[in-house]
Write a protein that binds this DNA or RNA. Structure first.
Lengths: 344, 344
DNA sequence: TACGTTTGCTTAAACGTATAAGCAATCTTA
DNA sequence: TAAGATTGCTTATACGTTTAAGCAAACGTA
C-alpha cells in the first residue's frame, strides 16, 4: 500500500510547519491567526494531494476513536442482521463507525469480542448479552466503559438497556387468544435466564391468570438454544399429544421457534387455527407461504436500534451518566392464526 | 471511561523505562538482554494491573491495524449476512477484526464507506461492488490499497476477485430443465452490468442454445433493483401471460427474486412443476413452506468467504501481488420444482 | 522614540507503542 | 591489569495528529 499523504507532506510542499497545516485544516485559522494567503494555499495543496486525515492518529491523540463495537448473538439471523443494519445507519449519522461480531450465545466468544473491541479503543459497546455473562458486564461497569444492553438483560443489574415491552406484548398476545375462545394455551420458549425470555413467559402466565385460566406446567416447554430445531420438534410432539390433554393454541417466544414449529404443524397436517391457534413473537419471511396468515408481535427494530445508539452516545459524552432503561412498544399484527374459535 | 493502564504505568510501578517493559511484553527479553528478575517482575505487574495493549497506538506505529473493511450490498439480506458471518470468523482466525457497512447498491454510499474505512487505516477491503463503481475501484488500485471483489465484478478490470461459477451453475440448471422436457424457459434477473448477472444470463442463453432451443427475447425480463418486488410481480404477469406464448419453466437469478416470484405463483394457484417448472439461484428459508420442494443452486458461501479473506491477506502481505481470480464451484440441489415434465 | 499590542508563524510536547542506539558497570581474557 | 566483550538498562526517535506556548516582526499609540 502506497504511503498516504500526511499533514507533514502538505507542510513540506507549502513550506510551513505541520502545526499551521493542522490549524487550517481544522478550520481554526481565526484562533491561530493564520494569514489568509497561506491558508488558501494550504487548502489548495491539501485538496490537490487529496489529503485524508488519519483517524488512527487522531484517535490516539484524543483517546476516542468514534467507533462503537456491536456484539449480537448471530449476525446471520435476520432479526439481528436488521438491528445491525439500523445501528450501522444510526451510528453513521452521528459520525461513528461500527465494529461487529457474533457471540453465538457463547460466553467465551462474548468475552473475546469484548476484549478485541476494547483493545481497539472503541468508545462504547452495544451488546446483546449472553446467558451468564453478568461478570463480563460488571467488569465493563468497573472499568467505566460506556455500553448499552440491547434486546435482553439481567434482572439484578442496573445498566443502560433498550428492550421491547416483552411482558406486555406477550400478555396482549395471549389475551387475544383467550378472548377468542382458546382455553388451553401453551408456549414454547428458550431455556435461558435472560430477561427477554423471563418477561415473555411471565406475560404469558399473567395473561392466563387474568383470564381466569389455571396454568398447567406441561403447557410450557423451554428448549435449549443449542440444537433447538430438534428440541422444538420434540416440544411440539409433547404439546400436541392427545393423550396428555393437548393444547388448543400455542404462543412461540421467537421467530426461530415459530418457524420450526410451523414445520411440524405443516407435517402433521394440522389446520390453523381450527386445530391449533397460534401467535409468534417476531415475524419471518416464511410466514407468507403458510396457508393461513400468522398473527405475530412486531417489534419496532428501528426504534430499538436508534435508542440503543442514542443511549450509548449519551453515555459516551457524559461520564456521570445514570443508567437508562428504554422500553420500546411493539405491535400485534393480527392474522388468521388467532381467529375466534368456532363453537362446536 | 477510566484511563486504561499503559506501558508507562507499568514502567513507573516497577521503576524501569517504558522501553524495557515493551521488550518484555513482546517476548524480546533475549534480544534486548533483559535481566531475569526484572523481566519476571514486569510480567507480574502487567498481569496484576491487567494490562491490555492499545492496538490503536500499535497501528499508528506499524502503519497497519489488523482490521479489514467489508462492504456488502445489504447486511440484512441473509445471503450477505451469512457471508459477513463467515468472513468475521475467518478474519478472527487470522487475527483480524472486521469493520462493516452496507452500500445499498448505491454509488455514493459505497464511496462513503470506502473513505471511512481508509481513513480508519484498514489494511484492506472486501467489497461487493456496486454497478458503476469502476472508478472507485480503479482509485483503490491507483492508491495501492489491497482489496478483493466478492460475489461480482467488472468485465474490464483485472482485480482480485472471488465469485461463484455463475455461468456454469446457471448453464447446468437450465440444462436440467431442458433435459426434463421443458421447452420454453424464461428467466427473471436483475438489470445490472455486474458480472454475476451477466454470467448467469449468459449461462442461461448458452444452455438453451446447447439444447437447440432458440432464445426469445421476451423470455428474459430484467428488473431494476430498486423497488424490485413490484417489478418482479409485473415480470411474472408478463411471462405467464397465455396470449403471448407463456413459458413452461422459469429460472430466477437470485433468492430475493425467487421469493417474490413464488408469491405470485402462490396467488395464481399455479401448480409447480406441472404448470411451471422452476429453479432458483440461492436458497431461502421460505422454500420449506412451499408445497413443492424447490430446485436451487447452492453457492458455497463458506468457501467464498474463506477465499476472499485469504486472497486479501495474501495481497496485504505481498505488495507485488498479482490479481487473483478465484471461482468457487456451486452445487445444484434437486427438488420437485424441476421434475421431468409429464407428457400430455 | 519607546513601549505595548497584534500578527503570523514555529517549537515543543503529548497520545501509547516499538526499537535502534547509547552508555555505564561488570565480566573475560591474555 | 588493561583492553575488549558482555550485560542490563536508559535515551531518543518515530508513527500522524493536535494545541499550548513561544518568539520574532510589524504595527499602534503616547
Amino acid at each position: 500500500m502506497k504511503k498516504r499523504v500526511s499533514i507533514k507532506d502538505i507542510a513540506e510542499k507549502v513550506g510551513v510547519s505541520t502545526a499551521l497545516v493542522s490549524y487550517v485544516l481544522n478550520g481554526k485559522e481565526r484562533e491561530a491567526r493564520v494569514g489568509e494567503e497561506i491558508a488558501k494555499k494550504v487548502k489548495k495543496v491539501a485538496a490537490e494531494m487529496n489529503y485524508q486525515p488519519n483517524l488512527i492518529a487522531r484517535g490516539l491523540k484524543f483517546g476516542r476513536t468514534n467507533t462503537i463495537g456491536l456484539i449480537v448473538a448471530d449476525i446471520s439471523n435476520p432479526f439481528f442482521a436488521t438491528l445491525a443494519r439500523n445501528i450501522e445507519l444510526e451510528a453513521q449519522k452521528n459520525g461513528y463507525t461500527v465494529l461487529f461480531g457474533s457471540s453465538d450465545e457463547q460466553l467465551e466468544k462474548s468475552q473475546n469480542l469484548i476484549n478485541t473491541f476494547l483493545n481497539r479503543q472503541v468508545d462504547g459497546l452495544i451488546i446483546t448479552p449472553v446467558a451468564g455473562s453478568q461478570r463480563q458486564i460488571a467488569e465493563l461497569q468497573k472499568k467505566g466503559v460506556p455500553f448499552v444492553l440491547m434486546d435482553r438483560g439481567f434482572l439484578d443489574m442496573e445498566t443502560n438497556i433498550v428492550v421491547t415491552d416483552n411482558h406486555d406484548a406477550m400478555f396482549s398476545a395471549v389475551k387475544l387468544l383467550t378472548k377468542n375462545g382458546y382455553k388451553k394455551i401453551g408456549m414454547v420458549a428458550y431455556d435461558t435466564p435472560l430477561t427477554h425470555m423471563k418477561d415473555r413467559i411471565q406475560g404469558y402466565k399473567d395473561a392466563l391468570k387474568d383470564a381466569g385460566i389455571r396454568f398447567r406446567s406441561n403447557w410450557l416447554v423451554k428448549v435449549p438454544y443449542q440444537d433447538y430445531k430438534t428440541h422444538v420438534a420434540e416440544a411440539m410432539a409433547q404439546l400436541l399429544d392427545k393423550r396428555s390433554n393437548a393444547v388448543d393454541a400455542l404462543v412461540f417466544a421467537t421467530n426461530s421457534i415459530s418457524v420450526q414449529a410451523l414445520k411440524v404443524i405443516h407435517k402433521k397436517n394440522l389446520i390453523v387455527p381450527d386445530d391449533l391457534g397460534m401467535i409468534s413473537f417476531d415475524e419471518s419471511d416464511t410466514f407468507e407461504f403458510f396457508y393461513a396468515s400468522i398473527t405475530y408481535i412486531k417489534q419496532n427494530l428501528n426504534a430499538i436500534s436508534e435508542k440503543s445508539v442514542q443511549s450509548l452516545l449519551k453515555n459516551i459524552n457524559n461520564s456521570n451518566h445514570q443508567p437508562l432503561k428504554v422500553v420500546v412498544p411493539s405491535a400485534i399484527i393480527v392474522g388468521q392464526s388467532s381467529r375466534k374459535k368456532a363453537t362446536k
